[in-house]
Amino acid sequence: MLIRRSRPNLMASFMRFLLARSVLASWGRQVFWQLPEPLRYMLRSCVSSRPSPPRRLASPSDLSPRAREIYARLHVSLEGTKKEEV
């Protein structure tokens, strides 16, 4: 019983943690960019300039216009394959 009751609580806590983390990160970014440049230098120099992570290709909106146009032409077959599988 204990386990069954605690599972949803754990999940909810975890979801709240994720939400809070994302909100804080977003807020932090906004605040960071409002700081005067010298202060940003100081903060950035505390952590070395690490390369930005690669752009995630999750949907066509992550593509450039030319790539999106090509994707649309590739996608015709993708849709076709899915329908056949269904």
Partner: peptide, 25 residues
């Protein structure tokens, strides 16, 4: 592009491929 579209292609692969093709052509 037509030739590539004819093969089996998952969405993630199609996105990657489209990006490479855009840079190549």
């Amino acid at each position: 592009i037509e030739h590539l579209a004819g093969g089996e292609l998952e969405q993630g692969e199609a996105l990657q491929l489209a990006q490479s093709l855009a840079r190549t052509f």
